[in-house]
Design a protein around this nucleic acid. Structure first.
Lengths: 114, 114
DNA sequence: AATATATATAACTAAATCCTTATATAAGTG
DNA sequence: CACTTATATAAGGATTTAGTTATATATATT
């Protein structure tokens, strides 16, 4: 079920996989859409999706001939649990994050526009 | 200075490097202490420290023949900025993190006991 | 049934990554 | 100055990883 040791960190270390996650954060999608949205080759996308699935970050269900992938936010528990203390650390010391988030404030990059 | 693209994610993907960061979160330390505390070989520790430094996660200053390494929490901005939306996502949907944090609640693993 | 579409897997290559041993550099100590 | 201690770097091997092309599998369509 949940990844054992650092699997999540490795899954998330790859840029294309973060792009896939960001995409799925806006809602479930079939592989085909992920392929066109990311520009990855189909086999490569499938491979990244398998890695993400094995890390517990996404899940897939069949819809006819398609496989719909969806985000499993709970899979990030290990990562979030690890950063939390650091987050606390520099919330007291620095406002670097705020500056970072401001720089990233781009409407096209929004996730979950609800 | 600050890492450009995903450098932080890759730096943090490695288990030994997370151990080093967790160690430095408790305070600055010379390389020698990091070596004995982690069990890494000295050259390997130096290598991991260089990677962490280039990613902006640690900084070093000279103290005689020693190099004192210290945490730079601001270096985690990219990572924290990226997880934030997901954090929000499942704070609404799931309490998996809380359970995860409870499981990790070990006095020996505390950071920055101030 | 034959063909087309959607996804997964296999086989392979190129590049990156981690680790070790050996050596360099620089600062302390006698 | 000779020697030791602390850290960094170089060189090499072994494993891992991301990517490709080719093929398998399963579902839909005609």
């Amino acid at each position: 079920m949940s990844a054992t040791g650092g699997e999540v960190f490795e899954a998330v270390a790859e840029g294309s996989r973060r792009v896939i996650l960001d995409l799925l954060a806006r809602g479930p999608r079939p592989v085909g859409e992920i392929v066109t949205a990311t520009g990855l080759s189909q086999p490569n996308a499938s491979r990244h999706l398998r890695i993400l699935r094995e890390a517990g970050l996404v899940a897939s269900r069949a819809d006819g001939q398609r496989r719909i992938y969806e985000l499993r936010p709970a899979g990030l528990a290990e990562l979030i649990g690890w950063v939390a203390p650091y987050q606390a650390l520099w919330k007291t010391s620095l406002d670097a994050l705020e500056r970072h988030l401001d720089a990233e404030a781009d409407p096209d990059t929004e996730r979950e526009d609800h």
